[in-house]
Amino acid sequence: MTTTIYGVSGSRAIRSLWAIEEVGLEYTHVATHFFNDSKTDDYLSVNPNGRIPALVDGEVTLFESMAINLYLTKKYAPALYPMSEGEQAKAIQWSVWAISEIEPQQMQIVIQKFFNRDNIDQSTIDSATENLQRPLAVLNKHLAGQEYLLGDSFTVADLNVSGVMLLMQMIEFDLSAYPNIKNWTERCYSRDALKRAQSLG
């Protein structure tokens, strides 16, 4: 069975490149950029949304990084996928939380800093920064007294949430007011699998 993952490390596809490196699966990486590459007929037959990442694993084709990561860890890396139904639900909960509470706000900052450089709207950055304070406070409180989101071990929940929050490094977001998050991201980002994923095109 052939496993192929599409995307480039300098994009949100880094989340799934990290996941596939974590599970230790042999795979083919097709460096697909989020501009022209993702709009070709060949790629649209894999992901009709024209976005990255996408995964083809035998007869299974998936898009959306959170879904890809949950699938990969459940199938190939049970140590990263919670055993109980309750913990599995929490992994899904935190994954959905990250893309609904964190990602939209940090993307507003990314757009202004990297795509609107000649006409930055500082009010948009300020508003997004303010809107991030509540979810960051929730996460910081949750991490008090524990190493990872579901306890003492790194799981797909940590991979997905910290994977979404990699953009905070890009925008140089100040996490000093959230020491538990800062320490947690440092633990997550020190993993060898992420370093390997970041070295990919």
Rank of each mutant, 00 (worst) to 15 (best):
L143D: 01
H142W: 14
L143P: 10
S162E: 02
L166G: 03
N183I: 07
D174F: 11
N180Q: 14
Q169S: 08
H142M: 05
E186W: 02
G145C: 05
V156T: 14
L175C: 09
L143K: 01
T185C: 08
E147D: 15
L149E: 11
A157H: 11
G151M: 10
L150H: 04
E172S: 12
Q169P: 01
N160S: 08
Q169R: 12
M165A: 02
L166R: 02
L150A: 03
K182Q: 15
E186R: 09
M168N: 09
A144M: 09
L159D: 04
I171L: 00
N180V: 03
I171F: 01
F173Y: 15
W184H: 10
L150W: 04
Q146I: 09
L150Y: 06
T155W: 06
N160C: 13
L143I: 08
Y148L: 04
N140S: 09
Q146G: 07
A144W: 03
D158P: 14
D152I: 05
L139C: 03
H142Q: 13
L139H: 01
A177H: 06
L149T: 11
K182V: 03
A157R: 12
Y178T: 01
E172Q: 12
T155K: 04
Q169E: 13
L159I: 14
L149Q: 13
E147A: 15
W184T: 02
N180T: 09
L166Y: 11
K182H: 11
Q169V: 10
A177Q: 12
G163E: 01
E172D: 14
A157C: 09
L166H: 14
M165Y: 00
L175Y: 06
M170F: 15
N140P: 10
D152L: 08
N180P: 04
V161E: 00
H142Y: 06
D152V: 08
P179S: 14
V161F: 13
M168D: 02
E172A: 12
T155S: 15
I181E: 00
L167M: 14
A144L: 08
V138C: 07
L167C: 05
V156K: 06
L149G: 10
I171K: 00
G163F: 05
E186P: 03
N183R: 11
D174A: 09
D152W: 07
Y148D: 04
L139G: 01
K182W: 01
A137E: 13
K141V: 03
E147V: 06
K182Y: 04
W184S: 02
Q146N: 09
K182A: 15
P179D: 13
H142L: 11
S153Y: 07
P179T: 13
S176M: 06
G163W: 02
Y148H: 14
V138I: 15
D152M: 11
L139A: 04
A137V: 07
Y178A: 00
F173S: 00
V164H: 08
G145K: 04
G151T: 13
E147W: 03
N183M: 06
E147S: 15
S162Q: 06
S162W: 10
E172C: 05
L143T: 06
T185K: 06
T185V: 08
L159P: 08
S153P: 03
L139N: 00
N160Y: 06
L166C: 06
E147N: 15
Y178N: 00
V138Q: 12
Q169I: 07
L166M: 14
A157P: 13
I181Y: 01
N180A: 10
